[in-house]
Every structure is written in structure tokens, then in C-alpha cells.
Simulated scan of single mutants.
Amino acid sequence: MRKPPRALIVALAAAGTLLVPAAAAAAPADVTASDCIAGGGMVVVEARSDDGQIVWSKHCAGGLHDGRTVL
């Protein structure tokens, strides 16, 4: 029985590591409103209605902390 070429094994191993999601990069840290503004962004306050209940959320728009949740 023939052994697979070493280059094929290395390529498959490299492809497997690229397909693993980076969990740490997917969850940005929360910031304070002061940090958001100091980083050049602005605090956006949103109100949505989910099944009759109002849900409030705040996030930083623009600047250094763009997209992060504001505490």
C-alpha cells in the first residue's frame, strides 16, 4: 500500500487549522461611554420592541471602539 505524499498531509493539516473559528476574536470587550467618546466615537442608544417588551441596547459607533457594547 502506498503512503500519501508528505505535501498532501501538510496541506490537509494546514487547511484544518484555518477552518477552526477564532472564538476570542469574535467577542469584543465592552467599553464605557467615556472610552467610546475619547476614542472618537459616539454612543448610539437603540430601543426595539420584541414581543411587546422594549429592549434597550447601547453601542459605540465609529472611532477606536466601533461596534463594541457600551456599559
Rank of each mutant, 00 (worst) to 15 (best):
Lys58Cys: 05
Ala14His: 02
Val31Ser: 07
Val31Met: 01
His65Gly: 01
Gly62Asp: 00
Asp30Lys: 15
His59Arg: 13
Trp56Asp: 07
Val45Met: 11
Ala47Arg: 12
Ala13Asp: 12
Arg2Cys: 04
Asp35Tyr: 03
Gly67Gln: 03
Val20Trp: 10
Gly52Met: 07
Ile54Arg: 09
Val55Leu: 14
Val43Pro: 00
Pro28Asp: 08
Glu46Gln: 09
Gln53Leu: 10
Arg48Met: 09
Val44Gly: 04
Leu64Arg: 11
His59Tyr: 15
Cys60Ile: 00
Ala14Asp: 06
Lys3Cys: 06
Lys58Phe: 11
Thr32Met: 02
Arg6His: 09
Arg6Asp: 14
Asp30Tyr: 09
Leu71Pro: 03
Val45Lys: 13
Val43Phe: 02
Cys60Tyr: 00
Arg2Ser: 07
Val45Pro: 01
Gly16Leu: 13
Lys58Tyr: 07
Thr32Ala: 03
Ala38Asn: 10
Gly16Glu: 10
Cys36Ala: 11
Gly63Cys: 01
Ala11Glu: 14
Gly67Tyr: 06
Ala38Asp: 12
Leu64Asp: 04
Asp51Leu: 04
Pro28Lys: 08
Val10Lys: 10
Asp66Met: 05
Ile9Glu: 04
Leu18Phe: 13
Gly62Lys: 06
Leu71Phe: 06
Ser57Tyr: 14
Ile9Asn: 02
Arg68Asp: 05
Gly16Met: 10
Ala7Met: 11
Thr32Gly: 00
Ala14Asn: 03
Ala47Gly: 05
Thr32Leu: 01
Gly62Ser: 01
Ala22Ser: 13
Leu64Lys: 15
Asp30Val: 04
Asp30Gly: 07
Val44His: 11
Val45Ile: 13
Val70Gln: 02
Leu12Trp: 13
Val20Glu: 06
Asp35Arg: 05
Ala14Pro: 05
Ala15Ser: 15
Leu64Glu: 14
Ile54Ser: 08
Val55Trp: 07
Val45Leu: 04
Leu12Tyr: 06
Arg68Trp: 09
Ala23Glu: 08
Ser34Cys: 02
Leu19Phe: 09
Ala13Lys: 10
Thr69Ser: 10
Gly52His: 02
Gly16Gln: 08
Val70Arg: 03
Gly63Pro: 02
Leu19Ser: 12
Val44Asn: 10
Ala22Asn: 14
Thr69Ala: 13
Gly41His: 05
Pro4Phe: 10
Gly40Glu: 01
Asp66Val: 02
Asp51Gly: 08
Ala22Gln: 13
